[in-house]
Each structure stands twice: as C-alpha cells, then as structure tokens.
Amino acid sequence: MPGPASNGIPDSPLARMHPMAKIAGVCSLGLATLVWPDFTMGLGIVVILFVAAALARVLRPFTGVMFGFGIPITLMLLFIQGCYSPKNTKVILDLGFAELGLEGSLYAAKIVVTLLVFLGSFYLTNKTTYMGRLVAALTQIGVPSKIGYLILASLNVVPQMQRRIAVIEQSQHARGLETGGGLISRTRAFLPLLGPVVLSSLTDSQERGMTLETRGFGIRRVRQTSYLEVVWRRSDTVMTILFTVFLVLALVLGCLSRTGLVTFAIQWGGRA
C-alpha cells in the first residue's frame, strides 16, 4: 500500500530518528534558509537533503519530487522575477524579448531553494516516518490522543478512498460503463462515482468512531498507553541541539549581514 500510513519504510538512521527530532529539523532548516540573505545556504541544504535521501534509500522518489517541483517552479520564477522584477538593475542575459536581471534572478533563486528545503525536508520526514510513530510521538509530548487519531484518520482516508474508487470503478465497468477514452468521457464517467465514495467514507468513519468508543477511546482521566513505543535516544538529543544551534547561528549571521556588520565572501551584484 503506498502512502505515508504504511509501514513499508526502509530501515535507515533517518527512519530510526525520533519523529519530533525530524520535525525540529524541518523547522530549523527551513527557517534558516528563509532568514539567510541569499540562496547559497539553501542550495547547500538541498544537496545535504539529497545525501540524506540516498542514505534513507528513498533517493529515487525524492529526486522525482524535487525535480518535478523544482524545475517548473524555477523556470516560472526566473522568468517572472528575473525578467520583470522592479529591483533589476544589472542585466546578465538578453533574451531578445526581455532582459534577465541579476537582482530578480537572485530573488527567484532564494524563493526556489526555500521552497525546496521545506518540501524536501518535509518529504523526507514523511517518507521515513511511519505515521503511527509520529502520532505516538505527538501524544507522548502531550497532544490529546483525539487529535492524534484525527491526523491518522485523515491520512488513512486517502488510500482507503483510492481503493474504494478502484472497486467502484470495477463494478461500474461490470455494468457496462466505459471509463476509458478521452479526458472528457473519463471525467463524465468518473463524476457519478464520487458521490458513493464520499458518502460511504463518511458512514465508514462514523462506524469507526463508534467502534472506537466501544473500545474505550473516549475514557477520560486515564493516561493512555501506546502500543508503539517511540524512544528518544541520545542521538535525537544531539540532532535537536545541532538543529537549534544551526538555526540560531543562521539567524544571528543573517541579521548581522543585513545590518551590514558582517560581509560574506561572495558578493552578488545586489542583495535579493
């Protein structure tokens, strides 16, 4: 079964890491990229994320997501910001119909790497974390188990609906419905199927709610235990401290450079 709810996650240091430490990582790396004055750090982090993805044995899907998102968004932003940013003063390329400006391009690069860092780190977290573990970790730090269930249920609902749609589609074929052919005929055939899928998902979740109640999910004033034990190891502490220090350093250096107190080795023509 595809999707983050399944437990088919290859074993790796990243998979063994505590989910909260990974979330700390996502926040730290993303924010650091955001406050850093140019795109260089983000680019470095993206490279590191690729290495991490290789270590976690998810390089192939990771590459697909990063390039699938990265290439079109880069082209789009480079075109919009690079050619038409009002900040543009230095022309680096004459395209004929428009001129590519340095300032706008830098700004575009900054946005792209920031998005990629957030996307990549979040994707890695998602790909290497069994959702049950994430929810167990969340309840461990005091998030109510009902909210935890809400997260799990909403994540499970998508693959469940996909399976359901597949079966319903089969049964409609068996009744002579053609869903092949062009996009329009497909859409026309597909729309009537949505009703029962949504409706039955709703009745399903109602039934699941009732069975949860009968199994004592709603009992109050009891400290619930979890079948999945998520252990916080020393390496998680180390990683979290590293992430925090990294973020603080990036913040301080970023602010200092903005105020002009520190200058970096690489000087772009203008600041994005």
Binding site: H173, G176, E178, P192
Partner: peptide, 23 residues
Amino acid sequence: ANTAQWARKVGYVFQNPDDQLFL
C-alpha cells in the same frame, strides 16, 4: 474487449453492494 463490452454477456454482482450502488 474491455469489461464494459463484456458486461453485455456476463453480469457480475459484487460481494459488497456498497461498491456497486451509486445512484
């Protein structure tokens, strides 16, 4: 031929009616 075409010859009633009824 595809399933929709064979539907003319072979009718199939699914185990779970909820998979089949949608109108």
